[in-house]
């Protein structure tokens, strides 16, 4: 038992404390002086428009992807459960994007979205619609990335929803049917309430993973001589984690970057605590 404990102390607890410590210093990796500055980094943060841009963007990633994933996941899972054939086949195919490398699929989508010569624009033009900038337009880039996140996470949601749906005893539904309830009423009154723990679990999981969105942005909007920055044109896709990464490893401001990780930690903590409250209540009920 000693070894795992030491491991957690050394690889998780101590670095976490170190992160708090670093966040209270002006810690530029290129200079030897690392003065203690108290909460200065946090004050600077509050006045940093790029931080707020990243925070707002991250909020939108969550606000778009989580409801979309839940709604589509539940819809697809219900459809799969309600057909009698090919259930395994559907489940498997919808799951494929989830198991493939995020980096790889990000590049595939970058190519689909490509403005001049990408297939999506060619299809739009073929049916007489105007071409879209997608990732290279500040107004569309964030939605384009969010769509890929939903696309990739959908399979996981379907699997978990299917497991949840299967745990609902079929007799409940049959009884309701005999009472004359229609399909929508059954869904609304029986399926949905009984799926509540599953929904909360998936919502929290989706929220936390969207709060940490990184690889998609790094691979879909960074680089290219046109944009330069990591967070897309005019920081339109910049997320908190991408901002942390660019501050820490491109601009070497370790103290300032750590301050943002502390903020992210606080947000995730709140989400987790809320989840525990909600879940516990559900289970008692």
């Amino acid at each position: 038992m000693a070894l795992p404990l030491l491991f957690f102390l050394g690889v998780r607890i101590y670095p976490a404390l170190l992160a708090f410590n670093v966040s209270l210093h002006e810690w530029d990796i290129m200079s030897r002086a690392r003065p203690f500055v108290g909460l200065d980094n946090f004050r600077q943060l509050a006045a940093d428009p790029v931080f707020w841009k990243a925070a707002t963007n991250t909020f939108w990633y969550v606000a778009i992807t989580v409801p979309a994933e839940l709604a589509l996941g539940l819809a697809v899972a219900s459809l799969i459960q309600s057909v009698n054939k090919f259930q395994g086949f559907y489940r498997t195919v919808y799951f494929i994007p989830y198991i493939t490398s995020t980096v790889a699929v990000s590049w595939v989508w970058r190519w689909l979205y490509f403005k001049n010569g990408g297939i999506l624009n060619q299809l739009l033009l073929a049916v007489g619609l105007p071409a879209q900038p997608f990732l290279s337009g500040p107004a569309q880039a964030l939605y384009s990335i969010a769509a890929v996140v939903v696309w990739q996470a959908l399979g996981y949601q379907v699997i978990i929803f299917l497991a949840g749906l299967e745990m609902i005893p079929p007799t409940f539904k049959e009884a309701a049917k005999i009472d004359g309830a229609n399909a929508w009423q059954i869904f609304r009154r029986i399926t949905l309430p009984l799926l509540n723990p599953t929904i909360v679990f998936l919502a929290v999981l989706g929220t936390i993973s969207s709060l940490q969105i990184f690889a998609q942005i790094m691979n879909m909007t960074s680089g290219g001589s046109g944009q330069g920055d990591l967070g897309g044109p005019l920081n339109s896709t910049l997320s908190l984690v991408v901002y942390i990464y660019s501050l820490a490893f491109y601009k070497f401001k370790m103290g300032y970057a750590s301050a943002i990780t502390v903020v992210l930690f606080a947000v995730i903590l709140v989400v987790t605590l809320v989840q525990m409250k909600v879940l516990n209540r559900r289970i008692e009920y």
Binding site: P133, Q227, K251
Partner: peptide, 18 residues
């Protein structure tokens, strides 16, 4: 250099995209 170049890119993007 990095920040100075980025500022110039951002300014052209303001004109080109917005």
């Amino acid at each position: 250099e990095t920040s100075e170049r980025q500022a110039l890119i951002d300014a052209t993007n303001e004109v080109l995209l917005k």
